[in-house]
Protein backbone atom coordinates (compact mmCIF):
# COMPACT_ATOMS: atom_id res chain seq x y z
CA UNK A 1 0.00 0.00 0.00
CA UNK A 2 2.72 2.40 1.06
CA UNK A 3 4.70 1.47 -2.04
CA UNK A 4 1.79 2.22 -4.35
CA UNK A 5 1.36 5.62 -2.69
CA UNK A 6 5.08 6.33 -2.97
CA UNK A 7 5.22 5.25 -6.63
CA UNK A 8 2.24 7.48 -7.37
CA UNK A 9 3.96 10.52 -5.78
CA UNK A 10 7.18 9.86 -7.70
CA UNK A 11 5.24 9.44 -10.95
CA UNK A 12 3.40 12.74 -10.38
CA UNK A 13 6.74 14.42 -9.73
CA UNK A 14 8.23 13.01 -12.93
CA UNK A 15 5.22 14.10 -15.01
CA UNK A 16 5.39 17.63 -13.55
CA UNK A 17 9.13 17.68 -14.17
CA UNK A 18 8.94 16.66 -17.80
CA UNK A 19 6.00 18.98 -18.53
CA UNK A 20 7.61 22.05 -16.97
CA UNK A 21 11.08 21.45 -18.33
CA UNK A 22 9.89 20.88 -21.90
CA UNK A 23 8.77 24.53 -21.98
CA UNK A 24 12.45 25.54 -21.75
CA UNK A 25 12.83 24.47 -25.37
CA UNK A 26 10.19 26.89 -26.67
CA UNK A 27 10.81 30.51 -27.50
CA UNK A 28 8.67 32.21 -24.87
CA UNK A 29 9.71 34.99 -22.51
CA UNK A 30 11.83 34.32 -19.44
CA UNK A 31 8.90 35.00 -17.13
CA UNK A 32 6.61 32.53 -18.87
CA UNK A 33 9.24 29.82 -18.58
CA UNK A 34 9.71 30.77 -14.94
CA UNK A 35 6.05 29.97 -14.20
CA UNK A 36 6.41 26.54 -15.78
CA UNK A 37 9.70 25.88 -14.03
CA UNK A 38 8.11 26.67 -10.67
CA UNK A 39 5.65 23.85 -11.45
CA UNK A 40 8.35 21.40 -12.40
CA UNK A 41 11.21 22.27 -10.09
CA UNK A 42 9.40 23.22 -6.89
CA UNK A 43 6.16 21.23 -6.92
CA UNK A 44 7.46 18.23 -8.86
CA UNK A 45 10.51 17.93 -6.65
CA UNK A 46 8.43 18.25 -3.47
CA UNK A 47 6.18 15.48 -4.73
CA UNK A 48 9.15 13.21 -5.45
CA UNK A 49 10.61 13.87 -1.99
CA UNK A 50 7.24 13.07 -0.37
CA UNK A 51 7.34 9.78 -2.27
CA UNK A 52 10.80 9.09 -0.85
CA UNK A 53 9.48 10.03 2.60
CA UNK A 54 6.81 7.30 2.40
CA UNK A 55 9.51 4.86 1.39
CA UNK A 56 11.92 5.63 4.19
CA UNK A 57 10.12 7.29 7.14
CA UNK A 58 13.15 6.74 9.37
CA UNK A 59 15.01 9.60 7.66
CA UNK A 60 12.16 12.09 8.08
CA UNK A 61 14.19 14.97 9.59
CA UNK A 62 16.55 15.10 6.63
CA UNK A 63 13.83 14.77 4.00
CA UNK A 64 11.65 17.37 5.76
CA UNK A 65 14.61 19.73 5.78
CA UNK A 66 15.04 19.00 2.07
CA UNK A 67 11.38 19.91 1.41
CA UNK A 68 11.59 23.13 3.44
CA UNK A 69 14.83 24.30 1.86
CA UNK A 70 13.54 23.40 -1.60
CA UNK A 71 10.39 25.48 -1.07
CA UNK A 72 12.15 28.48 0.39
CA UNK A 73 15.17 28.62 -1.89
CA UNK A 74 13.42 27.81 -5.15
CA UNK A 75 10.73 30.42 -4.53
CA UNK A 76 13.27 33.05 -3.57
CA UNK A 77 15.37 32.21 -6.61
CA UNK A 78 12.29 32.59 -8.78
CA UNK A 79 11.57 36.02 -7.35
CA UNK A 80 15.19 37.16 -7.70
CA UNK A 81 15.43 35.90 -11.27
CA UNK A 82 12.12 37.57 -12.16
CA UNK A 83 13.02 40.96 -10.70
CA UNK A 84 16.61 40.96 -12.00
CA UNK A 85 15.69 39.87 -15.52
CA UNK A 86 12.83 42.37 -15.78
CA UNK A 87 15.15 45.16 -14.63
CA UNK A 88 17.68 44.11 -17.25
CA UNK A 89 15.04 44.18 -19.98
CA UNK A 90 13.92 47.66 -18.90
CA UNK A 91 17.51 48.90 -18.97
CA UNK A 92 18.03 47.50 -22.45
CA UNK A 93 14.98 49.41 -23.65
CA UNK A 94 16.29 52.59 -22.07
CA UNK A 95 19.55 52.19 -23.97
CA UNK A 96 17.64 51.50 -27.16
CA UNK A 97 15.32 54.46 -26.94
CA UNK A 98 17.47 57.08 -25.21
CA UNK A 99 20.86 56.83 -26.84
CA UNK A 100 22.86 59.74 -25.36
CA UNK A 101 25.43 59.74 -28.15
CA UNK A 102 22.76 60.18 -30.78
CA UNK A 103 22.89 63.50 -32.58
CA UNK A 104 20.73 64.93 -35.28
CA UNK A 105 22.35 64.30 -38.61
CA UNK A 106 23.82 60.94 -37.63
CA UNK A 107 21.25 58.94 -39.53
CA UNK A 108 22.99 59.17 -42.88
Amino acid sequence: MIEVLSSFCILVGLVFGFWGTSSLLGSRSVLFKLHNLSVSDTLGSISIIVGLLFLRPREWPLLLLAIISLMLWNTMLGYVLASCSSDAVKNQHDVLYFDPDFEIGDES
Binding site: K33, L34, L37, I48, L77, L81
Partner: peptide, 30 residues
Amino acid sequence: DIWQTMLSMASISTKSSLIVLMLSVLRDDW
Protein backbone atom coordinates in the same frame (compact mmCIF):
# COMPACT_ATOMS: atom_id res chain seq x y z
CA ASP B 1 20.21 35.14 -23.85
CA ILE B 2 21.89 35.04 -20.45
CA TRP B 3 18.62 34.89 -18.45
CA GLN B 4 17.34 31.89 -20.36
CA THR B 5 20.68 30.20 -19.65
CA MET B 6 20.32 31.05 -15.97
CA LEU B 7 16.87 29.45 -15.90
CA SER B 8 18.22 26.27 -17.47
CA MET B 9 21.17 26.18 -15.07
CA ALA B 10 18.86 26.57 -12.06
CA SER B 11 16.76 23.70 -13.35
CA ILE B 12 19.86 21.53 -13.76
CA SER B 13 20.95 22.32 -10.21
CA THR B 14 17.61 21.35 -8.66
CA LYS B 15 17.30 18.18 -10.68
CA SER B 16 20.81 16.96 -9.94
CA SER B 17 20.38 17.48 -6.22
CA LEU B 18 17.11 15.55 -6.43
CA ILE B 19 18.91 12.67 -8.16
CA VAL B 20 21.42 12.65 -5.31
CA LEU B 21 18.55 12.44 -2.78
CA MET B 22 16.91 9.57 -4.66
CA LEU B 23 20.23 7.76 -4.81
CA SER B 24 20.66 8.16 -1.07
CA VAL B 25 17.27 6.51 -0.45
CA LEU B 26 18.03 3.74 -2.93
CA ARG B 27 21.36 2.90 -1.34
CA ASP B 28 20.15 3.64 2.21
CA ASP B 29 23.08 5.98 2.77
CA TRP B 30 22.45 8.91 5.12
